[in-house]
Amino acid sequence: MAVEVRIPTVFRKLTSGESRAAVQPGTIGDLISQLDARYPGFQSQVLAEGGSLHRFVNVYLNDEDVRYLDGLETRAGEGDTVSLLPSVAGGA
């Protein structure tokens, strides 16, 4: 079993419209590198200059924001789902 990455609409122009990708287990940083090898330009969209996560991209391991886990070092194992979502204003 692999790790499933869910790709939001905003990045699908890089993935030929694919909304899901299966990658090998590893850290979130590894996963992004794997996707960049498959879809050139992916990493530069998701990461900011300096290599941290883009401030308007949230990455979730299953349903938890990785910024509050170990960031790009957070490990995704077999069967986990990683979701990338653009940040949006909350209701209020």
């Binding site: 905003v10 401030r55 308007f56 991209v57 653009p86 940040s87 949006v88 204003a89």
Partner: peptide, 8 residues
Amino acid sequence: RSLDEGYT
């Protein structure tokens, strides 16, 4: 939206 329209 595009990422540039992200909001915090």
